[in-house]
Design a protein around this nucleic acid. Sequence first.
DNA 1: TTTATATACCTTGTATCACAAAGTACTATC
DNA 2: GATAGTACTTTGTGATACAAGGTATATAAA
Lengths: 110, 110
Amino acid sequence: MDRELKRGTLEMLILRLLHEKDLYGYEIVTTLTERTDGGITMKEGTLYPVLYRMDDAGFVEPYWETQERAVPRKYYRITDSGKKHLHELEQQWWNFARAVSNIIPKEKAR
Amino acid sequence: MDRELKRGTLEMLILRLLHEKDLYGYEIVTTLTERTDGGITMKEGTLYPVLYRMDDAGFVEPYWETQERAVPRKYYRITDSGKKHLHELEQQWWNFARAVSNIIPKEKAR
DNA sequence: TTTATATACCTTGTATCACAAAGTACTATC
DNA sequence: GATAGTACTTTGTGATACAAGGTATATAAA
């Protein structure tokens, strides 16, 4: 999978996963891989900067959850502002995907 | 349109347009805008570096066409290697687009 | 006991690429 | 003859995915 294709979409994908339920960082990575059958993966070195960026922007808010006998987990919750932003990103995505499909031939059935 | 979404797709889109017929640089810019109803535009400062890159990679080959009373135009022709590369890029695009649509909700009909 | 593996968070530096902003030069229009 | 449009080109900047490393704990294997 070409790294460049992910640009601008990872933020959207993360927000969408967080819209379903709160997740901690490491869980976002594994969930994304599972949900796309390995089609889209993301390194931790990518994820955390994105999360901090979105925290600064007010799209998500983190909270720690301490556990009995494990490393504490930092969960992320999407904010109202984040939901609004997510909606815009998804709108942009569909507009873009539609424009692309006006140029390149449709995928053949498989 | 978010600039980041275009990453990795402009090369594919240009190759696809050149696959239809030879175009000169400036014409690629205007054609792309028209074909997507302004949905995807590209600045000249973006186009030419992409073309040089693809020339170096052997995906396209340029040739000058001099005209009676106008500025000479530098046309680009897609090579066999470029066609192969285009096919791979389109394959990647569909795989990626499908994976994304596994995460975000389908666009509502309009 | 020691080692390895998996979980979980974090940081620094790098490469890529779309674009801004500028330049050159010619043609057509007002 | 001034302005706008066509057409190609270059230099520098910003955004971001990733490589590669680090820290720390818990569990499984040797």
